[in-house]
Write a protein that binds this DNA or RNA. Structure first.
Lengths: 133, 133
DNA sequence: TTAGGTGCAAAACCTTTGCCATCCC
DNA sequence: GGGATGGCAAAGGTTTTGCACCTAA
């Protein structure tokens, strides 16, 4: 049976309270503010458990480090190719696309993930500054 | 200046000659058939160089291990959630989507990646067999 | 000739795991 | 009380890197 612990709560809170799709390391840093003695192993274990519980989603699109977000309605992401930040996009999800692709390919498509890439506003501004423009 | 070496050639050939989006390890195994003394470091270095040269693409969608494919026209992927295999999909790429998303979000979208997930035919067959059905 | 490339091995990095103490139910 | 959980540290897997030697151009 699953128990409720302050460590687990804190990990979930760190994710839910962030809009930046934090990495395990960022979550670890955040949680340590409240529970300084927490270990990284515990963070990773709880990330796994919270995924199993369906409360957290792991994102690995185009990055070598996993990022996490609190479970919510399906949506798409934008990743900045300069700073690596990931943000949620407020555009409609094409829920019918899985069915259409199934029809075309014959594969049983259960879900899809869509990630847009480019340079975020902040990085574009920073880049202009550096160029003196 | 970039040199042409048999190691680099062999790495590219291993990727181009495979339809399975091999991992670095799979490429290493394949290349060793021709060049037994090649080292993993060389494989990784060449994977990086070939990406810089624009001849190879790294795929990291929803997986913790990078997979590689020879550069070709933009296309979408299907990943089997059971065996992890990645295959190319023969469906049209929505090239206009970046522009539409830019218009909606105000972000400068340069590209997008779309991955469909499910269980491939082989794994479905295997699963039926195991259940005695 | 010589800068780029290779092989090897160690290091770096992210994540998982074994062990035992601890804590929730 | 007992099993789930935590802390610690070591191990695991993938990728990178330092160094001395080699080789394509």
């Amino acid at each position: 049976m699953r128990r409720q612990t302050k460590q687990r709560e804190a990990v979930l809170k760190a994710i839910a309270g962030s809009s930046s799709h934090p990495t395990a390391d960022m979550i670890y840093d955040e949680v340590r503010k409240a529970i300084p003695e927490i270990s990284k192993g515990t963070v990773y274990r709880n990330l796994r458990v919270l995924q199993e519980m369906g409360q957290v989603l792991e994102l690995t699109l185009d990055g070598h480090v996993s990022r996490y977000e609190a479970k919510q309605d399906s949506h798409y992401h934008f990743r900045c190719e300069s700073c690596g930040r990931v943000s949620d996009l407020d555009i409609p999800v094409d829920e019918d696309m899985n069915r259409r692709v199934s029809a075309i390919t014959g594969l049983k498509v259960a879900r899809h993930q869509l990630e847009f890439c480019g340079i975020c506003d902040e990085c574009q501004t920073a880049s202009k500054k550096n160029k003196g423009g």
